[in-house]
Design a protein around this nucleic acid. Structure first.
Lengths: 234, 234
DNA sequence: ACCGGGCATTGACCTTGGTCAATCGGACCC
DNA sequence: GGGTCCGATTGACCAAGGTCAATGCCCGGT
């Protein structure tokens, strides 16, 4: 349990909390718990009754589904500052988590009671709108994901993923430091680790990137951009 | 334009409107428009500024994305009584439709101004919760769709689709009347029409179903159920 | 320094579903 | 009644990516 006075400053990073009245946020902070996760620790499982939702303070948490054979598809990789499982509260009578959640890296999460939060929503339309915005963003993200799963091939998805990883330092020679094992990225892009390896090798041979372990140097950003813009141009 | 006094009774079918205070619903009905669509008519396009959202009174409307090559992936096939595009309102400053919408059959839709609706939401937390519920349901649906796209093969998806079509008349010998051309179903399941044909033929040869045009008789429901439960059991 | 384990890489092969093309069949329309 | 159009079907072929297996590499522990 943790109620550090500046926890609320951290929470403001999440869209969900960004515009929430101070007083309400304080209520939430008061009731929240902190959980420390080691890599591989399970936060919740697909199908469990959803009583809490979460804010990732640091580390990395994956949300995923499993096929009966045990194949894993990562729906979302949560980054620090994001909330998750807050949308489940509205799934009918007894909401159940639609995915599994498991720490990839050493992580700290804050957990919140859904009942408390529901109470706040009734009183604050600002809080409601924050939640609506964050759900709307997630909806949009899922639609984009469906598009790239069905309308684009594996190379496209990987290149798009790489390009997403270089937003800030646009000017400098683009370097990407992968924050997760490649197998996790593969599960996120819905491909096998072998395929990911091969695609990276292909891009490397084409002189578009250089790979040293988890560190990738993008040699030719424009060529990568072209790849995802004009698909049949091999 | 249509303000028939019992329009609100129709609207109550949608989760979004189900629990909305009468007075608010009246406000919406007052400002709504009715649009008549012929098959192939476009309601809105991916990327257009979203100023209105919709209720399908009757007919069938598909929401879809297009690849640069023109391949179509149907994200959702809207059924009468459902609302759509209401979640876009919260996408940042200028919401834009994340998909295309086009009538499959002769259809009637009611359209609503988003600004009016936003105003109502500020005043009614019931309305907010209705919207949250309908967005949450859609989120869940998309997650399920991602699962079946990535973790399951084409046969699985088609069989699951067929099984979804026989919920009501559970007891009787299950008959499925396809409400759309097979090519539309194919685009929904993210397969080619040829593949859909072949899978149906395979199921037919296995004695699981009979096909006469748009009408499918399920000969062996249990066998179909087994197919989607125990995947490697060919 | 050595060993073991886990992730990553590479190769050979195979399966699924896509592509292309021909044919069919029913609906509609003169 | 015959022609046309469009969706559905079927066949032959192909390609992307999955599977299986062997090997390599890095890192951590003793």
């Amino acid at each position: 349990m943790n109620r550090s006075p500046d926890a609320s400053r951290e929470l403001r990073r999440a869209y969900l909390f960004a515009d929430m009245p101070d007083q309400h946020l304080q209520t939430l902070v008061h009731g929240m718990h902190e959980v420390h996760l080691h890599p591989g620790d399970v936060l919740f499982r697909h199908g469990q009754p959803a009583e809490r939702f979460f804010f990732l303070r640091d580390g990395l948490v994956k949300l995923f589904r499993l096929s009966p054979e045990g194949d894993e598809k990562i729906i979302e990789i949560m980054q620090p500052g994001q909330t998750f499982a807050e949308a489940v509260m509205f799934m009918g009578s007894q909401g159940r988590y639609p995915v599994n959640a498991e720490a990839v890296n050493e992580s700290h999460v804050y957990t919140f009671d859904q009942k408390t939060f529901l109470g706040l929503l009734h009183e604050s339309s600002d809080a409601c709108f924050g939640l609506l915005a964050s759900m709307s963003r997630r909806l949009h993200m899922l639609v984009n994901q469906i598009e790239s799963l069905t309308l684009q091939n594996a190379t496209y998805r990987l290149v798009a993923y790489l390009l997403e990883q270089i937003p800030r330092n646009v000017k400098t020679s683009p370097e990407v430091q992968l924050t997760t094992p490649k197998s996790v990225i593969a599960a996120h892009l819905a491909i096998q680790p072998e395929t990911l390896s091969r695609i990276l090798a292909k891009l490397r041979q084409g002189g578009l990137i250089e790979v040293q372990g988890n560190h990738i140097t993008v040699r030719d950003v424009q060529a990568l951009r072209n790849l995802v813009q004009m698909p049949p141009a091999e």
